[in-house]
Design a protein around this nucleic acid. Structure first.
Ligand code: FES
Ligand code: FES
Lengths: 162, 162
DNA sequence: GGAATTAAGGACATATCATATCCGAAAACC
DNA sequence: GGTTTTCGGATATGATATGTCCTTAATTCC
């Protein structure tokens, strides 16, 4: 069970976009340079965010991405699901139905108890991510990242934001 | 993020082994037939359980698998990790280190805030599974599976248990 | 002792998915 | 009109999941 590294990319990109002044856009090129990522591939992750209506885009020079909602209205789960998909991590292939002792055509009334427990764990994972807002991340980062790096990073970003 | 279907297989096999009388073994062949699975491949999952010391084996005719501990001493997480590995679902590739604004040779004191949150969610998933014992599953199944199917299944199993 | 049966594990084949690159179209800016 | 950007499709590559086959060693039964 491995998450795509695109999740890490998307979360870090959103953290940067959250620090952008009202109305400004940041291009894929800048986000890729800032994080040392392949531009073309990072673009796919950003497209996923766009399809999930988490970010807005505009074309042309000075175009790029900005958040579609305020950072306190976006949580980690939305971002993770945008790039990773909403499918549950455990998929039940209903192997209990292969039991040779089951009568012909017998139909289960409930999902299997095994699957229900695995799905409950999945939901616990989702709940944790749902509870963390993008604004919480930005707060933490602004405390933990050394002030001079934090400042120079956003200078770097603003120089490139259209 | 998708779990191997071997997790489903292992959990269902453990549920069956939990119903085995003291000292009896059940072969891969029987477990594969009961669940409609490829014998050779299911064998890999059972080997993983064996390496994790969750089950014991014996060779020869009448050989096979039995639980190494009582069902109340085995939880879902142990079984899942035996098959799926203990690696965390989120891996941080430390893309923050690629920030061109960071001074040469700067070293982070803490893991990235993004990673910490993702790991927290991972831990919530693990906690949920850790809290469910194999004996809990057996209780639920014995209530939910129709009595006649439950009974005939274990007759079927006992006929093949060495 | 010999034949049959079993788990263990290595070698190999295949399918699916993550990762990555490239290109053309449409939109926005100059 | 030329440039820059997002978007989507096509394609290539590597890793992982899935599945099969075969050999070896241990155990049971005759
Ligand atoms: S049949 Fe799929 S989890 Fe039980
Ligand atoms: S650098 Fe890996 S999660 Fe932030």
């Amino acid at each position: 069970m491995i998450l795509k590294s695109q999740v890490e990319w998307a979360l870090h990109c959103c953290a940067i976009l959250a620090g952008l002044p009202e109305g400004r856009y940041l291009s894929t090129k800048a986000l890729a340079e800032l994080h040392g990522l392949p531009k073309e591939y990072l673009s796919k992750a950003l497209q996923s965010l766009s399809q999930a209506s988490l970010v807005e885009t505009t074309l042309g020079p000075s175009g790029g991405y900005r958040l579609a909602k305020t950072p306190s209205d976006i949580n980690f789960l939305e971002i993770a699901e945008a790039v990773e998909g909403k499918a549950r991590s455990f998929t039940c292939t209903n192997i209990r139905a292969n039991n040779p002792c089951r009568p012909e055509g017998y139909c289960d009334s409930k999902p299997c108890a095994v699957a229900r427990i695995m799905w409950e764990a999945d939901e616990a994972w989702r709940d944790t991510l749902r509870r963390v807002r993008l604004s919480d991340l930005v707060s933490t980062l602004s405390e933990e990242v050394p002030a001079d790096i934090w400042r120079s990073t956003f200078e770097w970003v603003l120089k490139r934001a259209g």
